[in-house]
Amino acid sequence: MIMETCLKKVMDAVDIETFFVCKDEEEGRELALALLEKFGLKDTDIVFIEHSGPGARVRARGYLYRAGDQYAWLEGEN
């Protein structure tokens, strides 16, 4: 199954949660956003990040749809 097919079935957003081994919050933020971009997500942001000791715990989000968009999962029903 190709990525595009999977993303079409996402209701609104993809959250990726992970731990980056990094020196500070800024590096963690850059890594998270770069990762989302690799997944083909464009409308991205960091929902939560906390750096402590060895790295950063991150909750990063890519929106597939915002309100008012046309939702591919809805089109898929017909």
Binding site: M11, D12, A13, D15, D45, V47, F48, R61, Y63, R66
Partner: peptide, 14 residues
């Protein structure tokens, strides 16, 4: 679980 996040709409999984 994303109510405090102000950068975008609430997401279904949250």
């Amino acid at each position: 679980s994303d109510e405090a996040y102000s950068g975008g709409p609430i997401a279904g999984p949250s």
